[in-house]
Structures are given as C-alpha cells and as structure tokens.
C-alpha cells in the first residue's frame, strides 16, 4: 500500500519534472514577462508571416508589449535600422560590407528560404531549364508557345530595387543577367503572389514560404523547389533570412531575436514554410 502510494507520487513528481522541463525548454514567451514597450520592425517582406505570428504570440502573452511590423524590402530594412528608425531591420540577403561598416550592423540569421519561380496554376508549362528562365527574364523568349504552352505573350513580373528576394534570384537564377525593361514591377512577395495568381500568362518569383495553391512553383532543371530540396541543398536558389540590429541587439529586440532562434520561434519558422536553423 505504502509502496504503491510512493510509486504514484514519484510518477507524479517525474511527470511534474518533465512538464516543468518542457516549459523551460520551450524557449517561449515567458521571457517577455514584465516587459513593456514598443518594438518596431521593418524590411524584408518574406519575413512578415513569421514576424506576425511571433508578435501575435508575444503580444497575447504580454499585452504591454507592442510590436509594429512593416514591409519595405530588405534595402529599406537595413537602411531604417541603420538610421535608428526601427529596432529590427529584416533582410533577405546578407548586408553588404559597406552597409555593415556604415551602420555597425549585427546580423542574426534565423531561417533559410528558397526563391522559387512561379507561374499561374492554369499555365501548362510546369518545368523550365535555367537557360530558358534567363531567356524569359531577359526578353529573348516572349511567347509561352516556345516553351510548350499556349500561344500567348509572357508577362514577366519582377521586384523593386530594395528586394532581397530579387537580389538572390538575380544572382543565383538569372546569373546576374539583365531583366527586360518590359517587366512589371511589384513591391512585395504578397503582391507578387497576387499578380501571378491574377494573370494566367505571368511568370514571377516568390519566397518558398509564400507558395500555396494560388501559384505554381516551376521545376527548375528537374528539381522542384520545396522545403526538402532546399534543405538538402539540391535546389540552389536559396538564401538566409536575417534580422539586423544596429550594434548588438539589446532589450526587447534581443529578447525577440532570441525567441525567434529558440524552439518556439523555430517552430513558427517551420510552420510558415521556411527551414529552421536550430
């Protein structure tokens, strides 16, 4: 009888320990307890889904914290954090040496992301070769017929100068080739998705984390851009997602970045379709 009681209580104790440990290891929102203030974030638009989810969890836990998230593109993020307009500036590319030197930036990489070429789901062209892709974007191939699709002109969509997604796509997919002047320019990953979804003869590119039913990710040189192929290093058009601070992160910004790098933050990263780093 006594022994049985002992067994039950020790089991409870063990469970309790596990549970406690579980809470501790979650690397969760508890660290924000007692904090107060405003955290301003801007920059890369690929980052936004993760930023929003993290902010929602933190602000639900502690309503005294206010997290403001804006887009603008990687260039804008770096510039704004450098000038002290925001606390965290996101970028979908590494800050250049000039930028780091000028502003004293510190980079924190918290996810890996692929950049996929996308077309409208109704388009019959489902795969492309690198050379074809470069020819489409440079304006050499201007009709889908040449690629086995309908006899319709290709509408090329690209991103603005501040886009980190564009920087990576231009460097790794287009091999720094030129982009046709007829290309339409949109200003965020979300806008790109909407544009490609609305236009049956479009081609564009978005962060892999943004791919859903509304756009079709084209197989490039036989490799389909998915989380797995990016993770295993087969699909090469990939980049890190960074959060930058001016000098070492401190205060709320530090806690926020630690949260992103912790297990709970990394879980959000995976849920939103990116590859976690920890």
């Amino acid at each position: 009888m006594n022994i049985q009681k002992f067994k039950v209580s020790s089991l409870l104790l063990i469970l309790l320990i596990f549970f406690q440990a579980g809470v501790c290891m979650a690397g969760g929102v508890e660290v924000f307890k007692g904090e107060k203030g405003i955290l301003r974030i801007s920059g890369g638009t690929a980052h936004i889904p993760v930023m929003k989810e993290a902010a929602k969890k933190i602000m639900t836990f502690n309503p005294d914290i206010q997290i403001i998230i804006a887009g603008g593109g990687s260039g804008a993020g770096i510039k704004q954090v450098g000038e002290g307009l925001v606390d965290i500036g996101n970028s979908g590319r590494k800050a250049t040496k000039a930028e780091i030197d000028k502003y004293g930036l510190k980079m924190y990489k918290w996810a890996i992301d692929g950049v996929a070429t996308v077309v409208n789901p109704k388009n019959s062209v489902k795969s492309l070769l690198s050379q074809q892709l470069q020819d489409i974007f440079s304006g050499k191939i201007i009709n889908w017929k040449k690629l086995g699709g309908d006899d319709k002109p290709i509408n090329v969509y690209t991103r603005d100068a501040a886009s980190g997604t564009r920087a990576v796509f231009w460097k790794k997919a287009l091999k720094k080739g030129e982009t046709t002047r007829k290309a339409n320019v949109v200003v965020s990953n979300g806008a790109m998705k909407t544009a490609v979804n609305n236009d049956p003869y479009s081609i564009g590119y978005v962060s892999v984390g943004f791919i859903d039913k509304s756009v079709f990710a084209v197989t490039l040189d036989g490799i389909k851009p998915t989380l797995k192929s990016v993770q295993q290093g087969q699909y090469l058009i990939a980049r890190g997602l960074y959060s930058n601070t001016k000098g070492k992160a401190k205060g709320l910004a530090k806690k926020f970045i630690n949260y992103l790098l912790g297990p709970e933050g990394q879980k959000i990263v995976r849920e939103k379709g990116f590859i976690s780093v920890n």
Partner: peptide, 13 residues
C-alpha cells in the same frame, strides 16, 4: 521615387 527610395543613398540611382 517610391520604388527606389530604399536604394543605397550613395548610389547614382
């Protein structure tokens, strides 16, 4: 102007 406002301050663009 809106598309380039985030370009590098020092650049010709």
């Amino acid at each position: 102007i809106a598309l380039l406002i985030a370009a590098d301050f020092e650049s010709i663009e």
